[in-house]
Amino acid sequence: MMCQRIKLLLYDYTKGELSKIEIDMVKSHLEKCNACRKEMVFLEKIKSSIRQELLEPSDKILYKIKKINFENRLINLPVFFKPLIAFAVLVIFLVGFIYFGNLIKQGKTDKLDKFYQDIYDISVDFNNLS
């Protein structure tokens, strides 16, 4: 009779959801009763098998969440930030344009210089021949 009552309280006992009096009652009964102790061990086994394995979602979810979070932060930027960002993008674009433009120009000048140098070398060779 007592065992039946204790068995009904075991899960709440493991959860710490009993009153002080009930906890003492279960505790002292478990010390004396082998069958209820076995029941308790079995219950713990069941509980740990439910808890044992946390599953890992695939990485693509984290990637998607990061992407959506970033987009959401851009959308929700304060109003005064948006023109600032547009201005920064424009400046970066212009700096890039000027920098790469110069590189291209420099490349062309270098090629031209080499061309003139070659012509000069050839003419020097001709002079040496004569």
């Binding site: 946390l54 599953l55 890992e56 979602p57 984290l62």
Partner: peptide, 12 residues
């Protein structure tokens, strides 16, 4: 991202 690290496994 912090929340995801802390709870994604349990949620899943």
């Amino acid at each position: 991202e912090e929340l995801y690290k802390a709870y994604s496994r349990m949620v899943y």
